[in-house]
Computed example of a mutant assay.
Amino acid sequence: MTSGELHDLFLSTLVREAGGTRRHWRLVVGDVKLYPVETHPHCNWTVTPSGSAAATGEVERIADMLRARHPIVRN
Rank of each mutant, 00 (worst) to 15 (best):
E17H: 08
G20I: 07
R23L: 14
R22P: 02
D31G: 06
T56Y: 04
G30T: 04
T56Q: 08
R23A: 09
R67N: 05
L27N: 14
L11A: 04
V37C: 00
T48P: 03
T48W: 06
T46D: 10
P49T: 07
R16N: 14
T21N: 02
S52H: 13
R16F: 13
A53F: 12
T13A: 05
N44G: 01
M65I: 00
A63P: 04
H70R: 01
V29M: 01
S3Q: 15
S50N: 13
V59T: 12
C43D: 00
N75M: 05
G20Y: 11
G4W: 07
I72M: 01
E5G: 10
H42N: 12
P36S: 07
G19P: 11
A18T: 00
L27M: 08
W25A: 02
G57R: 07
G19E: 03
N44A: 00
R61Y: 09
R23S: 06
E38W: 01
V15Q: 10
Y35Q: 10
G4C: 06
P71H: 00
R23N: 08
M1Q: 13
R23T: 09
S3C: 07
H24Y: 14
M1P: 14
Y35V: 05
V37G: 00
L27Y: 10
T39V: 12
R26N: 13
V73M: 06
L6M: 13
P41R: 01
V59C: 10
V32N: 01
R61K: 15
T48I: 06
P36D: 08
I72D: 02
G30F: 06
H7S: 14
H7F: 11
S3V: 03
A53P: 08
M65R: 10
M1V: 13
G30P: 10
A63D: 04
K33G: 03
H24F: 15
V37H: 05
T39R: 11
R16D: 15
W25R: 01
P71T: 00
L9W: 05
